[in-house]
């Protein structure tokens, strides 16, 4: 018990993708981004990025526009709430037919 490789009696980990497991399989609603509505895409520059700053799972990459990693997006909807351009809509997973966890990232 005390000899596990981590060697620590406390819970401590390095921040990295997948540290809390594949959180994508928690998702009931999927954030769907309409690229043309995103302020960053409209300006053609890395502006706004509120969705990136607020995502509690750090699964949004900064960019023109930002990219959501569906492997780890848990579907909380915070990005949709904070988006000033209403560019992100939360759509029930059922509407997508199948959950795509394990199929890699998608925009």
């Amino acid at each position: 018990m005390g000899t596990r490789e981590c060697g620590s009696p406390i819970s401590m980990s390095k921040p990295s993708a997948g540290e809390a497991g594949r959180t994508g399989d928690w998702r009931a609603n999927r954030p769907v981004m309409t690229a043309q509505a995103c302020l960053a895409v409209k300006k053609g520059e890395v502006v706004c990025q509120l969705c990136w700053a607020y995502c509690p799972d750090a699964c949004i990459s900064r960019g023109v526009g930002p990219v959501i990693d569906m492997e780890y997006c848990k579907g909380c909807g915070i990005c949709s709430e904070v988006c000033p351009a209403n560019a992100i809509e939360m759509v029930p997973e059922a509407a997508h037919g199948v959950c795509n966890v394990g199929e890699g990232s998608e925009r």
Binding site: M1, R4, E5, C6, S8, P9, S11, S13, K14, S16, A17, G18, E19
Partner: peptide, 8 residues
């Protein structure tokens, strides 16, 4: 963990 190190 993400590095493959076994944790409690």
């Amino acid at each position: 963990n993400a590095d493959g190190v076994s944790c409690h």
